[in-house]
């Protein structure tokens, strides 16, 4: 049993097309940008439809877990903030440079600040998960002695996390672009 957390779980089990997508759309309107919805359905057609809908609306389809007859779809709401230009954190490396460090077995920490469901569907081998929204409460789990490389999907949330953690005195570097183009070692669902 996989325990991915989502901001909202929507039960569409037993509903026939088009209701699972219609309800997801409505629920999505109530979510904040960047939040994740888990939609549970038994209609097999929902697998292709949720992907098509997410693609056409700009939301980010994370993946689907198959548990018996139930399909658990995870979608992250498109985030307007991600499009907005924040101050850019000074220190960054690209994916290839991080792969080289991992290959060299350098003593580094990879911090993944995406949502738990995004992390769950695939992350860098050994990466620590603290979603951006929980960083304030959980940064105590990190050590100020560590060399920390922060990663998200496109480098924007991690940029924000770096600015934040740097202020608190952590040794952080942003990874650009991050998981959207990651082809290094990975743990996948």
């Amino acid at each position: 049993m996989t325990t991915f957390s989502a901001n909202q779980v929507l039960d569409c089990k037993g509903l026939a097309c088009p209701m699972p997508i219609v309800r997801t759309k409505k629920a999505m309107d109530g979510l904040k940008p960047g939040e994740v919805i888990e939609m549970q359905a038994t209609d097999k057609g929902s697998l292709a439809d949720i992907q098509g809908w997410a693609k056409n609306t700009g939301h980010y389809y994370l993946g689907t877990l198959h548990e018996g007859a139930v399909l658990r779809h995870f979608v992250r709401k498109a985030s307007a903030e991600e499009e907005k230009e924040d101050a850019t954190y000074g220190r960054s490396i690209n994916n290839e440079e991080l792969i080289a460090k991992l290959d060299a077995k350098d003593a580094i920490v990879v911090l993944d600040v995406r949502e738990p469901a995004e992390y769950g569907f695939g992350h860098i081998l050994g990466a620590v998960s603290i979603p951006l929204g929980e960083l304030d409460n959980k940064h105590g789990e990190l050590s100020k002695e560590s060399e920390i490389y922060v990663v998200c999907r496109t480098g924007k949330r991690s940029n924000y996390a770096c600015l934040h953690l740097n202020e608190k005195g952590f040794n952080v570097t942003n990874v650009v672009p991050g998981m959207s183009e990651w082809n290094g070692p990975k743990e996948e669902k």
Binding site: C17, P18, I21, V22, K25, A48, D49, G52, W53, N56
Partner: peptide, 28 residues
């Protein structure tokens, strides 16, 4: 239906015209 399903297989015939717009683009 989904565009991929439509491209794969659809109702066709001499003077049948058709257009594909997935229902999930028409929810609003």
């Amino acid at each position: 239906r989904n565009t991929s399903d439509y491209d794969d297989w659809k109702i066709e015939g001499g003077i049948v015209g058709s257009l594909n717009v997935p229902y999930f683009d028409l929810i609003d």
